[in-house]
């Protein structure tokens, strides 16, 4: 089997690829195909949201008042910051700045954790009020018979998004460990690149969730 790569990282080159470049492009394209399925996965919930908002526009205005715009906004800023640090980690790898890869991944991890802590307090505050999804809804504060529908959508969409953030935290820990071990440099950083794509998509989903739930008037 011909080995076209002369770098020390040929240990990461699998034999069925012509060279490291082809392996990188294939991995990246595979990630994009996965992201397409992710967009359509969330897309079903966005479609449900659009249908119900057009049926009950007044409900969405009333129920949105229960959500805290400040914390939603803070979480938006937190996720934008984490997208920036992921992009910085990839740039650091491309420039062979191995220490900066780990630093940027560490900041990303911390920001993702902050996002989930804020999410935790938002959810538990609602549980405390009796705001549960679907038939478990037990809050008297919103004068609308379908108030539970809004919160079913809220918990499903922010919950699925939060699950993606948790999976992202797991991936960031894995990348951080590997970067500390010195696995990534300008010749090989495919896992950082494709995890970055995933993380940016999670950011994009939140960019839409924020105005759709917190900013209704």
């Amino acid at each position: 089997m011909a080995n076209h790569s002369t770098s020390s990282h040929s240990r990461y080159l699998q034999h069925h690829f012509v060279d490291a470049e082809q392996q990188f492009d294939a991995a990246k394209m595979g990630m994009w195909v996965f992201l397409v399925t992710e967009i359509l996965f969330f897309g079903g919930l966005f479609a449900a949201y659009i249908v119900y908002r057009l049926w009950y526009p007044e409900l969405f205005v009333m129920a949105s008042e229960e959500l805290n715009t400040l914390w939603g906004g803070v979480n938006t800023v937190v996720l934008i910051g984490s997208s920036l640090t992921v992009a910085m980690a990839i740039k650091s790898a491309q420039l062979n700045q191995k220490r900066n890869i780990a630093i940027n991944l560490g900041i990303t991890l911390a920001l993702a954790a902050i996002f989930m802590v804020i999410k935790y307090f938002e959810w538990t505050h609602k549980f405390h009020l009796g705001i549960f999804p679907g038939e478990f809804y037990a809050y008297e504060g919103i004068d609308h018979p379908k108030a539970n529908v809004f919160f079913s959508l809220y918990y499903l969409m922010t919950g699925l998004h939060g699950l993606h953030v948790i999976i992202g935290i797991g991936l960031m820990i894995w990348l951080l460990v590997r970067s500390v071990k010195g696995h990534f440099d300008s010749e090989y950083y495919t896992p950082v690149e494709i995890t970055g794509l995933y993380w940016h998509l999670v950011d994009i989903i939140w960019i839409f969730l924020f105005p759709l739930f917190y900013l209704i008037d």
Partner: peptide
């Protein structure tokens, strides 16, 4: 890769449009 991304948006628009 841009085409893949665009395709997902087209199919999302079909899903929402036909549902509405």
């Amino acid at each position: 890769n841009l085409m893949l991304f665009g395709t997902s948006i087209v199919f999302l628009a079909l899903l929402v449009g036909l549902t509405l």
